[in-house]
Design a protein around this nucleic acid. Structure first.
Lengths: 207, 207
DNA sequence: GTCTATAACGAGATAGAC
DNA sequence: GTCTATCTCGTTATAGAC
């Protein structure tokens, strides 16, 4: 049996997933973990401090499970496939939803905000690395800021997860439309030399 | 002086913005509105019913303010400019953040979920219409599902707003990277006939 | 329609027994 | 290190005065 500290962390994650940030309290967490509510304060000092620890711990665990897969991605379509895979697995593990709920709670709490930003960065770093690798040979390589794009993609992913919670069917069409958009980007990466040259020239003028 | 019902709605929006969904209660709303807490239940029956009404009311008000601007958008860059404008104005009006907080709270409440989805649809409809108009002449027109894309863009926007709350600088780079990406898409729309033909052929084969 | 008062309960946090 | 008990306050919701 895991030690109490870890049980509280796991309980906190579970509680955020099932009750949302608004329904997460020392009592609900302790009930999920099967321990006394007082232990939240003994081990972590406050509920928010537990949330900070739990968020970082859970995110770390999920990210390492994906770092390998991301490093093996060879093109945008595969990256999107990993994204959809992640999205599907998140239905059980739920780290993205935890981050979404933490983000909502962190808007008015600088302490939570710092931890949530740090947790998000754990996802962003490998995504940024992957994007940089994939887009290095693109005709638009100089125009694309992979650091910013990785953050935009990650934030968008969280928004989509929240959206799916209130409109699953509509969110599905949203995800499908991104599939098609990725095809578009891949085609651009795979243009013949003439078209590629034309595109590059246009980009130079526009950028 | 506005009637109490409207004051409660305005108070609810204000409270969600400043306290987040986790810090929103009948008492905090009533305090913001300057009326008795009991009136929440007299006028709306429950806190969640007030939130539903407030979310729909406030969203409607903001969307009509943007429908005109969206209808005058002539290209993707202008659409993105409207988006950034909206993003900036949202710092004061805050409807996107309200929707983000509602989304977080709605994940475990079917009643809130329905209202939030309806409110979101109010934003999505004009965006979908605008996208459909702008992309009709694109070489990739047949490949793009404007309905899904409008939903993806809207959800992404909400995710970015949440992200900005915990990492303003990083969110800025994310927004900037989208600016550049829009340039990319515009250039594609503006290719010469040769490149355009090549792109179209590739798209047919890939799609 | 609006208020005060109150009921019934959950919240964060602490004290103290073991 | 874990528990029960408790304090104080905030929460939803209702009752009843005005």
């Amino acid at each position: 049996m895991a030690d109490t500290r870890q049980r509280l962390i796991d309980g906190a994650i579970d509680t955020i997933r099932t009750h949302g940030i608004a329904g997460t309290s020392a009592r609900t967490i302790a009930a999920t973990a099967g321990v006394s509510q007082a232990l939240v304060f003994y081990h972590f000092g406050s509920v928010n401090d537990l949330l900070r620890a739990a968020c970082l711990d859970a995110t770390q665990a999920r990210v390492v499970a994906y770092a390998d897969r991301l490093s093996q991605v060879a093109n945008l379509r595969e990256l999107l496939a990993v994204g959809r895979n992640l999205h599907a697995e998140e239905r059980t593990h739920g780290n993205v939803m935890v981050l979404a709920q933490m983000l909502a709670g962190a808007q008015n709490d600088a302490h939570l905000a710092e931890a949530t930003a740090t947790a998000l960065e754990k996802w962003i770093a490998p995504i940024e690395q992957t994007l940089g690798r994939l887009l290095a040979t693109s005709p638009a390589a100089g125009l694309i800021d992979t650091a910013g794009l990785a953050r935009a993609v990650s934030a968008a992913f969280i928004g989509l997860e929240l959206y799916e919670g209130v409109a699953p069917d509509a969110a599905q069409t949203a995800l499908d439309s991104l599939d098609r958009l990725a095809v578009l980007l891949e085609v651009m990466d795979d243009l013949g030399p003439v078209a590629r040259r034309a595109l590059r020239a246009k980009l130079r003028r526009a950028g």
